[in-house]
Design a protein around this nucleic acid. Structure first.
Length: 453
RNA sequence: GGCGCGGUAGCCAAGUGGUAAGGCCGAGCUCUGCAAAAGCUCUAUGCGCCGGUUCAAUUCCGGCCCGCGCCUCCA
């Protein structure tokens, strides 16, 4: 069953397929900038891409997919954070890269096969810029920076339909003074002592020392790790323009061949009905949600509850729903026999996923199976669905340890109950409730959980 | 101003030219000393509004209202 996915460039749903003779599918997903903890909007994109990676593996085989996701470790924000904290750039980016990996692991995202960094590919970027300068697609600005000349690439704007847009006239235009055209973008930024601190590298031939512009890192790293033509390039919608538009321009002008055969962009997450943004401050990190008592797996589930190409309004209620849904799946899984059953019962789930990554439809179909009485489900078939969605049912929210005073009350109540002194037991339960704890009795003992609001 | 997306039950959210998946919440029941958990059952004559096409529209077309996003370094 071929995987079909919307192509942002051709604007239609198309089948994914490897194009290289080795049969390896080349998949590049634009990664995070490592200067702060990623927020759940970022993770929506990475979780969606993780499902895509899993589907590709199921479709083509684990050894026939090469997944690359970069780490942007030098740009205005990373440098800004470095200056703010007074620590070297590398120390800052290491810290947030580690945190990013920790969060990804908690969300059960498969590790990409390669996670290249911008600072680890300076020569590759410089080389690419030099080629672009030689070919006449780039020019040196008076300050020693290098810009890409969009007028030199007739296809510029195909992805974002920039020519059909009437650009709002804005001030902004940082570096505008040095550009030939406002649409030209920086390939190399000349060193500015007041802004860049210690961060600089020797520049391309004829340019000043400095650092690469943002867009070039992806072009250079893709070329190095995946080749001149890749099978799929993905990211959040916000990257469509200018980032991906610029990547196409750089790569195609430099390499003279198709850059990416398929483009896919996932929509943004909304919180409280509006897009998350650092400037608005209405965002959650994974840590924020875990601190509220939700499990990372519930976060993952909640991120899959909406269609990836549609904005999803994220709420804490949806996390609660996700937590309950996971508990149902967990309970259902426990009832499955190890053998027997129809392996084909989950066809609808895969059909939904393979049809433009319709995760909510897949989850709906999943529960239809779960709710169908008398259906004999093969455990392995169920596990395959869980793998595709990346839902680890064994991952449970870390239990909050009860304070000693609470444990003492619980022990008293347990003893009272054993002694059939129900009046005392009930009184103690009330005390526990008043203290914000719920005591869950079992046959052989009890557990304590913080009271849900 | 330009480009694009969306409005489906209390909340979240699929979907289709032939009469509305699923999750949460809520209600009832079963089961448990109580509580929780678990299980069972129920919950939109309706898909923003107004027209049109059609035997038939939530689904197609037109208009309108509302919301959201992007428009040069935010996934």
């Amino acid at each position: 069953m071929a995987i079909k996915l919307f192509d942002s460039l051709k604007r239609e749903i198309r089948e994914l397929s490897p194009s290289h003779p080795d049969g390896v599918f080349r998949f590049y997903n634009c990664g995070p900038t490592v200067y702060a903890p990623a927020h759940i909007g970022n993770f929506r994109t990475f979780v969606i891409n993780d499902v895509l990676r899993r589907l590709l593996e199921l479709e083509l085989g684990p050894d026939r997919v090469k997944h690359v996701r970069n780490l942007t470790d030098v740009d205005d924000r990373t440098i800004g954070q470095s200056k703010k904290e007074g620590h070297p750039l590398g120390q800052i980016t290491k810290k947030w890269t580690d945190k990013f990996h920790e969060d990804c692991a908690a969300l059960n995202c498969l590790r990409p096969h390669v996670e290249p960094t911008a600072t680890g590919h300076i020569p590759e970027q410089v080389n690419m810029i030099e080629v672009l300068m030689q070919k006449g697609n780039a020019y040196r600005a008076p300050d020693g920076s290098v810009y890409f000349k969009i007028a030199s690439f007739p296809d510029y704007g195909a992805l974002s339909r920039i020519k059909e847009r009437e650009l709002k006239v804005t001030n902004s235009a940082f570096d505008a003074d040095h550009k030939d055209d406002v649409g030209d973008f920086a390939l190399w930024k000349a060193y500015k002592p007041e802004d860049d601190g210690e961060v600089q590298w020797p520049g391309p031939q004829g340019a000043s020392a400095g650092r690469p512009g943002w867009h070039i890192e992806c072009s250079a790293m893709i070329k190095k790790h995946l080749g001149e033509t890749i099978d799929l390039h993905t990211g959040g919608v916000d990257l469509l323009f200018p980032h991906h538009e610029n990547e196409i321009a750089q790569s195609q002008c430099c390499n003279g061949t198709t850059f990416a055969r398929h483009w896919y962009h996932s929509e943004h997450l909304l919180v409280d009905g509006t897009t998350m943004s650092k400037s608005k401050g209405n965002y959650y990190t994974l840590g924020d949600l875990v601190a509220k008592g939700y499990s990372p797996m519930a976060v993952r589930y909640a991120l899959l509850m909406g269609h990836p190409r549609k904005q999803l309004n994220f709420t804490l209620d949806s996390l609660h729903a996700a937590e309950s849904a996971l508990a149902s799946l967990r309970a259902f899984r426990a009832t499955l026999p190890a053998t027997g059953g129809d392996p084909g019962v989950f066809a609808a789930e895969f059909e939904a996923l393979n049809n433009d990554l319709n995760t909510p439809a897949a989850l709906g179909a999943l529960f239809t199976v779960v709710n169908t009485k008398g259906l004999v489900v093969h455990a392995a078939a169920f596990d395959r669905v869980m793998f595709a969605l990346g839902l680890d049912l064994n991952a449970v929210a870390a239990k909050t340890a009860a304070p000693a005073a609470i444990t003492a009350l619980a022990d008293q109540r347990w003893a009272a109950k054993k002694a059939k002194d129900f009046t005392a037991a009930d009184a103690l339960r009330k005390e526990l409730t008043a203290a914000g704890w719920s005591m869950l009795d079992r046959k052989d003992g009890y557990s304590l959980e913080p009271l849900k609001k």
